[in-house]
């Protein structure tokens, strides 16, 4: 046994040397923070540290579940994701089908290149543009409203506009890039199917309904399930650039709350309880989604 281990160690010694820095990195930057999750069960004190802080069991969670504010956060998170899916999910599919019908090579290439571009622009730049365009004094949107004789609207100060603004921004930034996976799936549809349909007298529109869409169905289902798996998550990075106290009512989500209360406000344990709740729900959803996709077509999400 020992000699076996020794030969393995010797034979693959360079592999061990290679993996060593990687292993250290994953322990330091992924697994140590996972251990840090225990603060959700503590009354964490930054001076005492993780090992000496008081253990309080599920206290943070019982406070959390009795906090009406928590339900507002869950509601906003879910609503942004659900509306985002309803309005945002079909668009990449429509765009991909449209691209698929284009025969002019250069037009196709250039327009595809344009469609991916916003994905690579930073959140700070995108949100800066949104803020500038919507600004009440010089923003182009309000100037347009003024031109029709109306007063400027303080878009980012009124709660009811936030979700629309946030979701539209997401759609603007993500549609082209999300279409890539559908374009790839469309390229895999056998040409014979279309040729046979043409012989049978089916027009382009019918071909789209009876050949293209059924062929895309597995990809659509998988993408939908992936999105459902992260329904408890709205990235704080983009939210915190756009929101302000006047619109917390509709704009504050679980992640932005964790950032504000936990890191800015120093309520580490309480905020970590929120994250842990999100992680558990997210994990169940992803595992469920994975099970469904496995049943559907034998592939798994991971």
């Amino acid at each position: 046994m020992l000699t076996k281990i020794k030969t393995e160690l010797y034979r693959n010694r360079y592999l061990y040397i290679m993996i060593l820095p990687v292993l250290v990195w994953f322990i330091l930057f992924c697994y140590l923070p996972m251990g840090g999750m225990v603060i959700a069960f503590q009354k964490f004190d930054i001076v005492r540290g993780i090992f000496k802080s008081k253990f309080v069991g599920l206290d943070n969670f019982s406070t959390l579940f009795r906090d009406p504010y928590f339900f507002r956060l869950v509601k906003n998170t879910l609503l942004i994701n659900v509306f985002g899916l309803i309005f945002g999910f079909p668009l990449p599919i429509i765009l991909a089908i449209a691209f698929n019908e284009i025969r002019q090579k250069y037009f196709k290439k250039i327009s595809q290149t344009i469609s991916y571009l916003p994905h690579f622009i930073s959140s700070v730049v995108v949100m800066s543009m949104v803020i500038q365009f919507l600004s009440p004094d010089a923003g182009i949107v309000n100037k347009l409203i003024n031109a029709f004789g109306h007063e400027s609207i303080y878009f980012l100060q009124i709660p009811k506009y936030f979700k629309t603004i946030f979701i539209s921004t997401g759609i603007w930034q993500g549609t082209g890039f999300s279409a890539i996976i559908f374009i790839a799936a469309l390229a895999g549809i056998p040409k014979e199917q279309y040729e046979a349909a043409t012989v049978d007298g089916a027009g382009k529109f019918k071909q789209m309904l009876y050949i293209t869409l059924p062929n895309l169905a597995p990809t659509i289902v998988i993408m939908l399930l992936i999105n459902l798996g992260s329904i408890m998550n709205v990235g704080h990075e983009r939210i915190i650039l756009l929101y302000n106290p006047a619109i917390y009512e509709t704009a504050d989500v679980l992640n932005s709350y964790v950032y504000r209360e936990g890191i800015m406000g120093g309520r580490y344990s309480y905020a970590q309880a929120v994250t842990l709740f999100q992680n558990v729900v997210g994990f169940i959803l992803v595992a469920g989604a994975n099970k469904i996709t496995r049943k559907l077509d034998g592939t798994t999400l991971w």
């Binding site: 697994y31 923070p33 950032y259 970590q272």
Partner: peptide, 22 residues
């Protein structure tokens, strides 16, 4: 095992606060 060790971090992380404290 090492593959699993690495892939696991794709679907599970401690979150923002432990990462910051770390």
């Amino acid at each position: 095992p090492m593959g699993l060790f690495i892939v696991f971090t794709m679907w599970f992380s401690g979150g923002m606060i432990p990462f910051y404290l770390n």
